[in-house]
Design a binder for these strands. Structure first.
Length: 741
RNA sequence: GCCCCAGUAGCUCAGCGGAUAGAGCAUUCGCCUUCUAAGCGAAGGGUCGCAGGUUCGAUUCCUGCCUGGGGUACCA
């Protein structure tokens, strides 16, 4: 990996690397070898030392070993494996010899405290007091800006937080917002001018479904308390989905029974005879018979008469009830590949039936409802006044919730895009794409056959529909317009979409279509994918009521934080307790999301979320609070200590834990750059934890206030520098640093 | 079928081609008369999915395979 010269405002004294590099290069040159070899430098991996190591002698030794052995003819007639062994053994010896020569050469100057050769590495250490003073001066004079990179000119827009109106904000949305906020802050700290944008989904099929359900069944029912309207609307949406999916749910149950219940195969004959008496279609009965006795699923469009399932329904219910009441016997299903455990119990199957049975009348209505949905969507696009008014009212209920949640999460947006605002523009682009021959009409819908347009024979980009056959807009219709708007209206140079990984192909398609169209900035458009949040017992599903809502989780976490604070620090005022509870509670939730890499699924376990021990935000926050308390107790005032050109500190014989802490402090600026380059808050999350851990080591090993001068002042300055850096690191995660806990 | 991602300690996860692969949780045993015990120390726990390759050196890079997850034309 090529190392970018870190354009940081704050040079890391440890990796004030240029001097070290040129000294080593000179030494190698003296040996008469290896000009042009890359000199790697890394911090010494030993506790209690401050310096750098290079493995350059390994690389030189490898080359030389091969040359020597070849020249002496020892490699003749040897197998490949033997050659490798010989080379590797010889290289090991040589690398130590070379390291010793480099060391001897380096020792001729007194630029470094010590220079050693070990295991073929060249280890160089620095004078701790000199570097410590310089580092601490840098940190304290920069304060909040410590770790910031030099200003850059490339303007970046980060779009994140795209919750849908008319639906609830759950823990999955929370990950997105936490990630987006953190990435925005990291990029800004790294030196980029950042524009933060949100893009609520205020129109689309889900909104139409919610509106249809609201108008058809719940008009004028809204809750009196305005704070509950958003959530209530979410329930309306879930209901609309349940209504429209009713037939699928019924068929799912049928198929589950067919798969899980070993008795159904023998009972089905009798059950279908009962169905016969209900005058159901004979072909349907034969069809059901087949589906229940051989592998395969019942599908709605393969049934001839809508009434068949309705007639079969009560018969199935009676059967399931009887099965649920039987003595429980452990039964294994003999599958094609051996034993398969049933995924449901008889009782669960009967419970599902009972649940669905409450809405037995829905079956017949589903087709009409689906038509109504289409009509509603078209009415919205046609600007039906009544409907638009209801849309605006309900939309605002959700948006009010979002504004409150974003505020609680510290998400502050420079731009609010709305899907409804780019809809028309998107349709115009579709028209242009059709005229340009990039898009075409297929089965009535406008699509782009991307691979074909690129002349690819393999499936890579496939085909993306960009307008429905009934002329209504899709998500893609709108994203085409949004992308253009981002670059043209906001004059940015790079656009980042923080959207979950399931949409990776979709974004490749969108950007490629724009490229085909000749929109150059498509190349500066990046989808930043991240994995989804799941629950210990499966995926989040708001339909099935398995979606932990942000509001609920927040309440639980706040409550837990309040209890712990009351127990640990009873003298805290009510106001301080409340503030700290928010900082710790929300911080903890955010950290749980950010301390996992983007491409890792987060398993959200509420018990873990409520535990504030170990590798979690409170650990880091606690270190910060303790640092604050030490400074407070010592009546530390850095301004009376620092001279005009910074601190001249004397740690005396510096302790290993002090060195270790200082080294970590010095690493912050480069870690910010790395996190920005890779869009990875995880790096900062790990950094903050590691820094807190090293502060704890120091805290336990070295008394601060009780120590003698000049060590006392040196340690206080170190505590202050740690406090500043912990705060800055947490800030990049969007997590606050409490001063008391 | 094709594409993407993951596989490291009992569990959840770190690990910038380099020295003895690390944390947290869980288990066991210790530490509050000393700057806050949301803490600290100690112990046990590993064929880094498998097989090749590149390299002086591979958990890390490449190829193939296995297992799991996701995506794959009118949902977003």
């Amino acid at each position: 990996m090529s190392k970018q010269p870190a354009e940081t405002v704050n040079e890391n004294p440890v990796s004030g690397e240029d001097g070290v590099r040129s000294a080593i290069a000179a030494a190698i040159h003296q040996l008469g070898a290896g000009d042009g070899v890359t000199i790697d430098l890394r911090p010494l991996p030993f506790e209690g030392t401050w310096g750098v190591a290079t493995s350059v002698s390994h690389a030189l030794a490898g080359e030389r070993a091969q040359q020597e052995l070849t020249a002496s003819g020892q490699l003749a007639d040897k197998s490949k494996k033997e050659i490798k062994k010989l080379t590797s053994d010889r290289a090991r010896v040589l690398s130590q010899e070379i390291a010793e020569s480099i060391v001897a050469s380096l020792r001729q100057s007194d630029a470094f405290a010590t220079v050693e050769a070990a295991n073929g590495y060249v280890n160089i250490t620095f004078d701790a007091n000199v570097v410590a003073s310089s580092l601490i001066s840098t940190i304290l004079s920069n304060g909040d800006a410590y770790g910031a990179g030099a200003a850059r000119t490339e303007r970046v827009m980060v779009e994140h937080s795209q919750p849908n109106t008319h639906k609830v904000f759950h823990i999955g949305h929370f990950r997105n917002t936490a990630l987006g906020v953190s990435i925005s802050k990291i990029l800004a700290h790294a030196g980029y001018p950042v524009t933060e944008a949100t893009y609520p989904g205020d129109i689309g099929m889900h909104v139409i479904k919610a509106l249809w359900c609201y108008r058809s069944f719940h008009l004028g029912e809204e809750p009196a308390n305005p704070d509950e309207r958003g959530r209530w609307l979410g329930q309306i949406y879930a209901e609309s989905d349940a209504r429209l999916e009713y037939r699928n749910d019924v068929l799912d149950l049928l198929n589950t029974v067919s798969k899980d219940d070993p008795h159904i195969a023998t009972a089905i004959d009798r059950l279908l005879k009962l169905l016969w008496r209900e005058h159901a279609d004979t072909e349907d009965i034969a069809y059901l018979m087949g589906r229940f006795t051989t592998p395969g699923e019942v599908k709605e469009d393969e049934l001839i008469d809508d009434g068949t399932i309705e007639a079969f329904w009560p018969i199935l219910g009676a059967y399931l009830q009887a099965e649920a009441e039987r003595e429980p016997v452990h039964l294994e299903i003999e599958g094609a590949n051996g034993h398969v455990e049933p995924s449901t119990t008889p009782q669960e199957r009967y419970d599902s039936w009972l649940e669905l049975d409450e809405h037995r009348d829905w079956w017949a209505q589903v087709p009409a409802w689906k038509e109504a949905i289409k009509a509603t969507f078209q009415a919205w696009e046609a600007g039906d006044a009544d409907l638009i008014a209801q849309w605006q009212t309900t939309r605002e209920w959700s948006l009010a919730d979002f504004r409150r949640i974003f505020d609680e999460l510290g998400a502050h947006f420079d731009v609010w895009f709305f899907e409804s605002e780019v809809e028309e523009e998107g349709k115009e682009i579709v028209k242009v794409l059709l005229d340009a021959g990039i898009a075409e009409i297929s089965d009535g819908a406008a699509v782009v056959r991307i691979d074909e347009k690129l002349g690819l024979t393999d499936e890579v980009y496939r085909t993306l529909p960009i307008l429905r056959s009934d002329g209504t807009s899709l998500y893609s219709t709108k994203d085409l317009a949004l992308t253009r708007r981002k670059f043209e209206d906001y004059h940015i140079d790079r656009a980042i979409w923080v959207v979950d990984v399931r949409q990776s192909l979709y974004f490749k398609q969108i950007f490629k279509i724009l490229e085909l169209w000749g929109f150059e900035q498509a190349k500066a458009s990046y989808h930043l994918p991240y994995e989804i949040v799941v629950l210990p017992d499966g995926v989040i599903s708001s339909r099935k009521g398995r979606a932990p809502l942000y509001d609920d989780i927040r309440d639980q976490v706040l409550q837990r934080a309040r209890e712990i604070i009351a127990e640990k620090n009873p003298s805290l005022s009510a106001a301080d307790r409340e503030q700290t509870a928010w900082q710790v509670g929300i911080g903890s939730l955010k950290y749980a999301m950010l301390a996992r890499d983007n491409n890792k699924i987060v398993v959200f376990d509420i018990d873990e979320a409520l535990s504030f021990d170990g590798h979690a935000a409170p650990y880091i926050q606690y270190a910060h609070a303790r640092a604050c308390r030490i400074l407070e107790n010592a009546k530390w005032n850095r301004d009376t200590v620092a001279g005009p050109e910074g601190f001249h500190l004397d740690f005396g014989a510096i302790e290993p834990s002090e060195l270790s802490l200082l080294q970590e402090l010095g690493r912050f600026p480069e870690e910010v750059q790395r996190a920005a380059d890779q869009y990875r808050p995880l790096l900062i999350a790990n950094y903050a934890f590691e820094l807190a851990r090293r502060f704890n080591d120091f805290y336990h090993a070295c008394p601060v206030i009780q120590s003698e001068e000049p060590v006392r002042t040196a340690r206080l300055a170190l505590v202050d520098a740690t406090r500043v850096t912990l705060r800055n690191a947490l800030a990049l995660l969007g997590i606050e640093a409490p001063e008391v806990m």
